[in-house]
Design a protein around this nucleic acid. Structure first.
Length: 884
RNA sequence: GGGGUUAUAGCUCAGUUGGUUAGAGUGUUACGUUGACAUCGUAAAGGUCACAGAUUCGAAUUCUGUUAACCCCA
């Protein structure tokens, strides 16, 4: 157990892997169903199998791991369900690219082979991501690892699809959807990102049939004019009233289209007349429905002009736009081009400009699903942390539109719908179908499309627990305790899970939604592949250790807000780990004669012992409270401050005298006990944040149990809080700092002892200082310590400082620098005057005295007295100096 | 157009129910390797808490408005 030879420097590489394997091998992450224990469960936001872990994952999983490890130590039956997502479009794109490298393509090898390739991809990259999660320290229950396309999830997806279809909540329809010509698939509304772009507004004249008159329209997408089936104006627009009902001649094409009136048209915009292309614009589509207009599709799925565009057929949509503009110009019907700023939709996956166009797709009716999902949040069953995301979530669900769920991809859950070529029947079924249920024909074709990836992700909290079977896991772990995710997928994922959970899981999927922000680069930019500014968490782990990365990610950051990545901050976290490492090393080097059964008598405790135990108790309470409130950053900060500024800077220093003195056995044993107690318990508190280093140290120092991760969370330590010890110790510490300050002022030779004379305005402190004068000697080189009493004359040739309750005099051998000393004290005087004045004003304020709580008034009065006493002492000193 | 976030030390950020001489890390300056740690220690400098009002005995903290940056939705 006793080891004095541990490395001088924190070296995470030497132990992180070892401990992870130890935990995993001993199944410490595994959650059995145990009905008598309180459950605490989290399902991981499944990373895409496409690639690798990025900094956002590192952040997300660090937060989850902290919560899980904390609750596990608190005694909950804790489940963290891991897994990954098949990520339809993204993965298909990756596999496509791999095939292209080989000079092949998905179309060449066919669907079956392609899907095989995608599975191979999944095996390779899925396991890589899971490995990366392990290197971060994530305490997931790997025995339960799931994948959104595994057998169980596929079964759940089918069940949900069929039930929704049977209830009429899933339907097939020909509607305007957002089409990505690059990914070659339809997208849902939220997969489109709108960016404001500078474009042009083209003014084109459409002749009124049989006259020389024309109507001028304005459009941003002239190439869609091949699909125009009308021109609309506002019914009250005087400019056009007399022309409504007339036919117009579509330029270039020559087709006749009606001019009609519709309330939708904004007479202020452009010329007040809009071309109507029902097959290529959502608003036009609706006008088309109202006015019974034909829908003419003029583009192909890859963004080229269709056969019906004559000379332009086969041309890219933008090439067509350029040529068409030239053509219109030469025909003299192009009357103007204005610069125009407008929002253009882009594919969130590949950034290609999406083309709104009609196609036949599957949709989910959202209204009835969204209502209970809003209700669950409004009535507080589900709570967002931070609370402000509630509004964002509710607003979105309250204005939700139907969800396009079919994708023209090969990688994903194929839609369980079959079409009968014989009678035209559509059959949706849980099991594969070979015979038409209506006409008995076996000429069936399965729908080729797959489902939106988020359709299966939406079932994640319960599909991973065995739904639709009524499993023990569901009974114990559903609803889950908390969902931890970024604000960027509240709509994509959180909202869908709530809807699906309420509908099929028969309860909310989670009680809390803990939202975090994005990790940005040091300039505040989003990390992205195209910018090349991403930082690989694995690189950070290899260089600095997972604990360092974890600690860096959760400090200096508050819930829901973005954070910037700085290497300096990584280093600062690493230094903290090193500090802890060396504090432990100090203890290990002083373990000789450690008696694990020894517990000191109360009387054996020194002031420092009582003080550090009290400070530790405060820390334990605040860490617990902050973790329970999802204030993980605050929790980590309080541990940082306790470990560094109190335990290391003061307690270790103060324990040295007793530890080095091998004669006084009782004192040495007490110091060892307190050091051991505080360190061992602090390691437990820190374990959720920095699992590896805490385990490594914990295993070296005296402990009981097999792992710090299964040790009990420190609780009920409040008995150790000792207000008197804290007050007295604070006075000692302040005095030490004051002496050091003076010594620095006069350039005292470091280490050379000098006398200090103390005068106690607060008499109760005298005894404390007499008993603990060793503290002043060792930490401020102040020796001997003389106590001045009222009857004596205060020392003259000395430097002075005043701290609460204590006047400090440092006699000077030579002459003191009167000028410098006067300046220093004058500055102090000014500060004190300012405070005294402020307090005087406050304390003479009738309102304050009458309305503020008595304890606040009392506190202010005490402050006032403290400052006044200090001022008197400083004044006295200044008077003395002036007389020299 | 609607909604939201942010504005605190040179930089990055804390500051959780209103009462602190407003904090940390980093950077800067001076000094220092005595047996945990130079990935360190000691000391210091550095802020009108964006601006203007309001509420209150009391505002960095609550409310309103303004300005600036960013984000989401339409």
């Amino acid at each position: 157990m006793q080891e004095t030879n541990i490395p001088k420097v924190y070296d995470p590489q030497s132990f992180e892997k070892k401990w992870y394997e130890f935990w995993e091998k001993n199944k410490l992450f595994h959650a059995k169903v145990q009905k008598d224990k309180k459950p605490y469960s989290i399902v991981i936001p499944p990373p895409n199998v496409t690639g690798q872990l990025h900094m956002g994952h590192a952040m997300d999983n660090t937060l989850q791991d902290i919560l899980i490890r904390f609750r596990r130590m608190q005694g909950y039956n804790t489940l963290w369900m891991p897994g990954c997502d098949h990520a339809g479009i993204a993965t298909q794109a990756k596999v496509d690219a791999a095939l292209r490298e080989e000079g092949s393509s998905r179309h060449e090898i066919g669907r079956e082979k392609f899907v095989e390739r995608a599975w191979q991809w999944k095996e390779k990259f899925g396991s890589r991501i899971m490995y990366q999660l392990r290197s971060l320290g994530s305490s997931c229950d790997w025995d339960r690892e799931r994948f959104t396309m595994d057998e169980g999830c596929s079964k759940a997806v089918r069940e949900v699809f069929v039930r929704l279809y049977e209830e009429g909540l899933i339907y097939q329809g020909t509607r305007i959807t957002n089409w990505c010509p690059h990914c070659n698939t339809a997208l849902s509304d939220i997969e489109v990102e709108h960016e404001t772009e500078m474009g042009h507004l083209y003014h084109i004249r459409y002749n009124v049939e049989g006259t020389d008159e024309y109507v001028e329209i304005a459009t941003t997408r002239p190439e869609t004019m091949f699909g125009d089936t009308g021109v609309a104006v506002h019914p009250e627009d005087e400019r056009y009233k007399r022309l409504v009902g007339k036919m117009l001649v579509l330029p270039v094409v020559g087709r006749l289209i009606p001019l009609f009136a519709d309330e939708y048209v904004d007479p202020q915009f452009g010329t007040g007349a809009v071309k109507v292309t029902p097959a290529h614009d959502p608003n036009d589509f609706e006008m088309g429905q109202r006015h019974d207009l034909e829908q003419i599709l003029v583009m192909t799925n890859d963004g080229r002009m269709a056969e019906n565009t004559g000379l332009y057929a086969g041309m890219d949509r933008y090439e067509c736009r350029r040529r068409l503009i030239e053509d219109l110009k030469s025909r003299g019907v192009l009357s103007g081009i204005e610069d125009h700023e407008h929002a253009v939709g882009h594919c969130s996956r590949c950034d290609t400009t999406v083309e709104p166009m009609i196609s036949k797709q599957w949709f989910v009716k959202m209204e009835s699903l969204a209502k209970p999902a809003v209700e669950a949040v409004k009535n507080g069953k589900i709570k967002f942390v931070p609370e402000r995301f509630t509004k964002i979530y509710c607003n979105w669900l309250e204005n939700i539109r139907d969800w396009c769920i079919s994708r023209q991809l090969w990688w994903g859950h194929q839609i369980p719908a079959w079409y009968c070529d014989n009678c035209g029947e559509t059959i949706v079924s849980r099991d594969d179908v070979t015979v038409c249920t209506k006409c008995g024909s076996n000429h069936l074709r399965r729908d080729e499309d797959v489902l939106d990836t988020w359709f299966s992700s939406g079932l994640w909290p319960f599909e991973t627990m065995g739904w639709p079977e009524k499993t023990e896991e569901l009974k114990q772990f559903y609803p889950t305790s908390v969902l931890v995710t970024g604000y960027d997928i509240i709509f994509f994922w959180v909202a869908r899970m709530v809807m699906m959970g309420l509908k099929f899981g028969e309860d909310i999927p989670f009680k809390h939604v803990f939202i975090h922000g994005l990790v940005r680069d040091s300039q505040g930019r989003k990390m992205s592949k195209s910018l090349g500014n991403g930082i690989d968490p694995v690189e950070v782990i290899e260089k600095y250790g997972a604990d360092t990365l974890r600690f860096m990610l959760i400090t200096g950051n508050t819930p829901g807000n973005d954070m910037r990545f700085y290497w300096e901050r990584v280093e600062s976290a690493r230094n903290f780990a090193n500090k802890l490492w060396n504090a432990s090393r100090f203890m290990l080097m002083n373990l000789e004669g450690f008696d694990k059964d020894f517990v000191p008598e109360q009387a054996e405790y020194t002031l420092a012992d009582k003080w550090i135990l009290s400070r530790y108790a405060h820390t334990a309470a605040s860490v617990t409270k902050n973790l329970e409130n999802f204030e993980l950053g605050e929790a980590a900060r309080s541990l940082y401050e306790f470990i560094w500024n109190e335990f290391c800077d003061w307690y270790i220093e103060l324990s040295k005298a007793r530890l080095y003195d091998k004669e006084n056995i009782a004192a040495r044993k007490t110091a060892q006990y307190v050091l051991g107690y505080v360190l061992e318990h602090t390691l437990r508190l820190l374990h959720p944040f920095m699992p590896f280093i805490t385990e490594e140290i914990w295993q070296h120092i005296p402990h009981e149990g097999e792992s710090v991760m299964t040790s009990l969370w420190p609780d009920g330590e409040n008995g150790k809080i000792d207000a008197a010890a804290e007050k007295n110790m604070t006075a000692v510490m302040e005095t030490i700092k004051a002496i050091r300050n003076i010594r620095a002022q006069v350039n005292a030779v470091p280490g050379r002892k000098s006398e200090v004379i103390l005068f106690f305005a607060d008499r109760s402190l005298k005894e404390t200082f007499v008993e603990n004068k060793g503290y002043l000697a060792s930490l401020a080189a102040a020796e001997p310590m003389t106590v001045w009493t009222d009857s004596m004359v205060k020392p003259e040739n000395a430097m002075t400082a005043v701290v609460s309750g204590v006047e400090v005099y440092l006699p000077m051998a030579g002459l003191i620098d009167v000028e410098k000393e006067t300046a220093r004290l004058t500055k102090e005087m000014i500060n004190l005057d300012k405070e005294i004045e402020r307090l005087a004003k406050k304390l003479s304020n009738e309102g304050f005295l009458a309305k503020a709580p008595a304890e606040v008034v009392e506190k202010e009065k005490e402050k006032q007295k403290g400052y006044t006493d200090k001022k008197a002492a400083v004044q006295e000193r200044l008077t003395y100096l002036a007389a020299l």
